[in-house]
Write a protein that binds this DNA or RNA. Structure first.
Lengths: 138, 138
DNA sequence: CTTGACCCTCCCGTTACTGGAAGGCCTATA
DNA sequence: TATAGGCCTTCCAGTAACGGGAGGGTCAAG
């Protein structure tokens, strides 16, 4: 199977599939003309990768999950560890976004949004107060 | 004021401040020895930037907000438009993460997490079903 | 034989920085 | 005065996960 068909079947762009090969996530065969030839097992792996990525797992997480998937004797605890860590990151990100949302929606609501220059959004950003002094990395 | 003092006062790393100068967000003066010299207005702007960034505004958003901030005659509607668009992006991101969280926490709960190989997390990722076929860009 | 749809590789651009190397400047102390 | 350290400078490279596009080979149909 050529890359175009695989893209069709997995929903992944051909560019992405080539990239996954480049970083060693899949190893399709090659035709004599240089075209990639994908086996069913490659397509299956790419589907796995697409689903894992859509759940927000990083490429390195995916690499680990794929290795565990192909290891029939793995312990489910190893899989759960990766997933639980990812879940914790998601929760942290949600909390961060919720905090941003709260502040921002408050400011947006307070802003008249008309032709006048007075704007609580800018006023707040301009103020040099402790409550606004946190610049933690995201 | 030198860059180290400004970093101290704004909470921004010196590297970041240099970067902001490079992309034209601030324009500190220069001493004869080549050191950057920051005025109070520069420090103020950097504080503004730090706060806007911590609310998740992009650099380009910040550039726009800063321009509006320095334009005494701007309309608050212009500011509100930027903030509301950002709020919408935040909401979309939260919704996406909530969906991931729901699926993932379900799987994590279903996984025994012991020494046995059976793992619903991997089983689900391996399945090629319609309900798991969406790989929309984030 | 040409057209058009594939496929290939290679390189740059994205976001917002961060790390590090190589070296100049400034102050204090031995 | 020499030197140590702590600043400061520039420039280069790398990050995550691709996307865009150039330049060019391949294949099946008409």
């Amino acid at each position: 199977m050529n890359i175009g068909d695989v893209a069709q079947r997995t929903g992944l762009p051909a560019k992405t599939i080539r990239y996954y090969e480049e970083i060693g996530l899949v190893r399709p065969l090659r035709e004599t003309n240089g075209y990639r030839r994908f086996r069913e097992s490659d397509v299956h792996k790419l589907g796995f990768l697409g689903r894992a990525r859509s759940l927000g797992f990083s490429i390195e997480d995916c690499r680990g999950l794929l290795a565990l998937y192909e290891d029939a004797g793995r312990a489910s605890a190893d899989v759960k560890r990766i997933a639980a860590a990812h879940l914790a990151r998601i929760d942290a990100k949600i909390a961060e976004l919720d905090a941003m949302r709260a502040t921002l929606s408050h400011l947006v609501d307070a802003c008249a949004g008309d032709h006048r220059p007075d704007c609580p959004i800018l006023s707040d950003l301009a103020v040099d107060e402790d409550k606004a002094e946190s610049h933690e990395p995201t």
